[in-house]
Design a protein around this nucleic acid. Structure first.
Lengths: 222, 222, 222, 222
DNA sequence: AATGAATGAGTGTTCATTCAT
DNA sequence: GATGAATGAACACTCATTCAT
């Protein structure tokens, strides 16, 4: 739940200390190049030569730092899933706003995050390779989706406690909300279809989604 | 049920009478084998040799019937998208039931369809290869998603006309409903996560989803 | 030497009678298509499918009429070598002209023949495949080169007898003359180099060549 | 003989010192094997597997050193055309001899060169594949023929200046001489025909050719 | 006699991986 | 630790040939 202590050292027998800045730099350099290639070409479509060239190292160096293609992919993917998919979590702590404003902002941030090339690419690649990398799908889920889901769940729980919402299963409703956020824009993007993802369009859709959600769970003041 | 829009002959220039049963048989045989391999390994991961072996024909025969790997994949994919993703459409015409019953049944059918290995596999493969086969993503969208969406939209529009629902943008709400259906079960399946997809679990989730939807759009009887 | 009795039936067990116009028509049809493809793509570069399509018959028909690719190529090549490379022979009988005029005309006809796409193509293909089809190279030589050489040799012999030329070895000198004819235009054409092969250019070169030859073999009238 | 113009390093970016002997060795090893196979089977008839086996390397190594079959062929061909077709050029500088002796020696060397398996093979292959490798045909012409032609042209020009010959167009006459050298022996060899190419036969033919040439261009001492 | 679907060995080429330097 | 040449199995695809119809 805290996630603070995760080191992201998967695949390297470095482990203790965390020094060796040179080795780390090379490692990051490789991971950066690998990311570019993996996101552009997918797992199968990426070649180790491409990655080596993009990272500016020799092919041999790739194998000095990682056990192989699968290992390199895992390391890249875990790092991204842990680091790049996080920024929504801070939001849910801001309970000073009205529920509607918070939900609208949450929906907006979710859409903005999920339409980003990185998130789209990670989604595509992990959905496509889930059979080959089941543990990565798990990582993606836990760090990319479930964490956000947890934050929203906590927020909803607090709102229920405050009497602002009436929700029987906050976790289920949180998940429902996040999927409602994926209508229209995200869904079409995943299929490569043209779609208006301007800030204005996202804002309008976020408001629509939040209002729909509130109609389900707002206490009916009779 | 009406069959007006069903062709069932997609991909085969055979048409009436069932002539040329041998040629058709080989073609179907190949497509069947190709489907097995493609769904199991993805597009890049499938090899033409594997497919030939699985289909019980020689590699040369593959190329006598299809222009190449991409062409074979397209033929397989289009046929499946057109034929296997259709069965929901008949539902929306049955207006004899209450809105709630209809929506619950719709949700149930949607979940049942989308958790099927075929639909899951097609989704994975097309989301992963959308850059390589943009037209297939389009096909998948139009035949697999948009058609169902259209039927639901029409149903909602009729319900609005009957005063049973209050919806400003039926198409948007239809899409919203379909995404709500993907919470919990479908979403987890796509990530290879364990999930209870028993009939009972699906029925319960369908009811929850339909009720949520009705809370948004049911006229508030004041 | 006469060449009149050659039948050109190589590769077909037709042999006697010479009737069966339908079969002959198909055969010619195939040979025509084969020629187009062979000359355009060379022996290795030509595929039986291409030939079948160009000839407007099925691939099976090809094998009904010929034993295989090599056999088809041989049949085509022999026919061409025998029929298309002949037209120079009539010239040498016209002894009514002066030696110079006759040699100029001979040189002109030789150049015109050898720059033709057919002769160029046959030359290229047989020089390239001489190891694979030694007997065809022999055919090409006998029907395409040696025959012309023989005619010129006879003409030179008659001219020597008439006292118009002084030649010790007419056959060697005839061959020398024919090679002199290949300077400049033919040689460059065989290498795909740009060259002026207009009638005027050929006429000028033919005169130059004939005059050179005469300077070698004309009796020096002192 | 002087070596001033010989580089001997064509195709290798090595230059001075002989560094990187290993890389160079492998490259040469490959080119040697490729040459054997190309000359034996022609371009289309040669397979990369054959070449790899003949060179004693793996197929992958072929592609580490060359971009592909066409590239490998080009490298082989250019190297040979530049290196193996050169040795005649030194001759024309030796003006100490009589014209006749020089021309006889030139004819002898030309015939000896052109009957060599390498020159014959290169000729066959490039004439056959001129459409596929127009630039190689150009290389062959420039390095294999035109260079020799240029040297002979210069020699003839000097002889004309000395009053030993009367030639209006030395370049054209040089070309004429070189083609006269190809009668009898070279020409027959190109068609795979049996021919006496003993030193004695070549010497006799060279004398015959040089004498013929002199009869054309020697000043008639009246 | 004619067809064209089927074959399977063959092609040029790529690529993850290894290892001597 | 870094390199990149070497590997060989795998890939998509072609093609001369066969044979049931």
């Amino acid at each position: 739940m805290t996630g603070i202590m995760d080191d992201g050292n998967a695949g390297t027998p470095d482990g203790a200390g965390g020094t060796d800045p040179a080795g780390c730099a090379k490692r990051e350099q490789i991971l950066k190049g690998a990311g570019t290639i993996f996101l552009a070409n997918g797992y199968e479509g990426a070649s180790m030569s491409q990655i080596a060239q993009m990272a500016g190292v020799s092919k041999g160096t790739l194998y000095n730092h990682f056990d192989g293609k699968a290992s390199l992919f895992s390391a890249f993917f875990e790092e991204q899933a842990r680091c790049r998919l996080a920024p929504i979590e801070a939001l849910s702590r801001s309970d000073g706003q009205s529920v509607r404003v918070t939900l609208v902002r949450f929906a907006e941030m979710t859409v903005h995050l999920l339409v980003s090339p990185m998130a789209l690419g990670l989604y595509r690649i992990i959905v496509g390779e889930v059979d080959k990398f089941p543990n990565l799908a798990d990582t993606f889920w836990r760090y990319g989706f479930d964490r956000t889901l947890g934050n929203l769940t906590e927020y909803l729980t607090r709102s229920v406690a405050r009497g602002e919402l009436e929700i029987a299963d906050p976790r289920l409703s949180a998940e429902q909300f996040m999927l409602m956020c994926q209508a229209r824009i995200i869904q079409r993007r995943r299929f490569g279809l043209p779609v208006d993802d301007s800030d204005a369009a996202i804002a309008e859709f976020a408001a629509f989604t939040a209002d729909s959600f509130l109609k389900i769970y707002e206490p009916r003041h009779q």
